[in-house]
Nucleic acid binder design. Structure first.
Lengths: 214, 214
DNA sequence: TAGATTGTTAATCGATTAACAATC
DNA sequence: TAGATTGTTAATCGATTAACAATC
């Protein structure tokens, strides 16, 4: 409630990483960590760590550092991970099936409730205990079951139509795996995972290193 | 060969996006595009587009703009997409299987040659015509078959050991899907896809929008 | 209290945008 | 040639790093 400025997206993108390292520290039973120790672990400067955290509050203590458990809790809370996010997947192809299982694995608060498909051959199947339902029923399902997140695992041609329908149905966020940039209303959060873009930037770095070694 | 300064990674990350939009333009039969027209399409400023491209060469023509075909070719070339990149997947779990099929779909120069597994039950199977081989044979296979890219689809515990072995075997790049930060030698390119981080930043934006609407 | 380490302000660095001369 | 639009330099903006006073 106190601090409420617009926080840069580069900061947000670092938060899950902080959280992952704190989780590791917790596992190891580490109780406290200074920004300097954290720096040599995570690879950001101590200054940046302190700056980042101070966007959200004063979590440390002078002369002591940060309490690992507390900071982990705070970051989880900032990210909104202390509440459940019900998800559905659209598209029961290979990627949709994989995400279904993958997020099962990471089901810490992100349950997959159903998968929607347009292909009649797949409708009625179950994938790791998740029902594959008819795409036509999606809007009704989202409304009735308070679905928070729609995961788009369709072809690029279908992606925008699916996004429109998900937004209309009232999801709060869309996780897009289709290799295309989609448009969503301002009230809907959007996160893209462009796997081919990622692979292509890997290819760039590979060919650059190749040249360097010549 | 002319321009050879160190190019910022934020620029590299935009290149695959430029390429995607140029591909779309090609499909539509568009012949030329000005930085201004491109700007309103892709959402970057015209200035940024020109700056970005001029890191690599002079691809435009004053008074005309950019030739779509030519620019598409140039960017593909910069990314190293005009050569084949042989890949293997490590880990035949759900994610490995999905990536296998997915990159099949995007097989434009990135063929998956084999999948490696430690679980004897899976060894010997085929996944969309790709053999699942014994992880113990991986190093030899990479050397003999000139594999360029190793895709890590293992658990986080195994990821670093796999990365070490891939690097030793001589891959040029590693595409890491395990939810952990791995270390690689300087000569190996590394690209991470941290799906859980992506999901968590989506959760942040969702809870932020929720607060705004209150 | 003295030592350590944060929170925060100030300085630097890098990336984006604006402006315009060069040129097709 | 005149108009359009690039390539590139200069100005601005934002993000990172450095420094240090506040404080546990």
């Amino acid at each position: 409630m106190a601090k409420d400025a617009k926080i840069s997206n580069v900061v947000i993108k670092r938060l899950p990483r902080y959280r992952r390292y704190l989780q590791e520290l917790q596992k190891k039973g580490v109780e406290k960590i200074s920004s300097n120790e954290f720096s040599s672990l995570i690879g950001y400067t101590a200054s940046q760590i302190r700056q980042d955290l101070n966007n959200f509050g004063r979590f440390g203590q002078q002369g002591y550092g940060y309490n690992v458990d507390e900071l982990y809790y705070e970051i989880s809370s900032i990210l909104g991970l202390n509440q459940k996010h019900k998800m559905i997947i659209v598209g029961a192809g290979n990627l949709g099936q994989a995400i279904c299982n993958y997020t099962e694995y990471y089901k810490s608060g992100f349950p997959v409730e159903a998968i929607f498909e347009i292909n009649p051959k797949l409708i009625g199947m179950t994938i790791s205990n998740i029902m594959v339902l008819d795409y036509e029923e999606m809007v009704e399902y989202v409304e009735k079951n308070d679905i928070d997140i729609g995961i788009i695992c369709t072809t690029m041609d279908a992606a925008q139509e699916v996004a429109d329908r998900l937004s209309f149905a009232g999801v709060k966020g869309i996780w897009n795996f289709a290799p295309v940039d989609i448009e969503v209303p301002g009230k809907v959060a959007l996160e893209n995972v462009h796997l081919s873009d990622s692979l292509h930037s890997l290819a760039y770095h590979m060919s650059k290193k190749k040249k360097e070694n010549k």
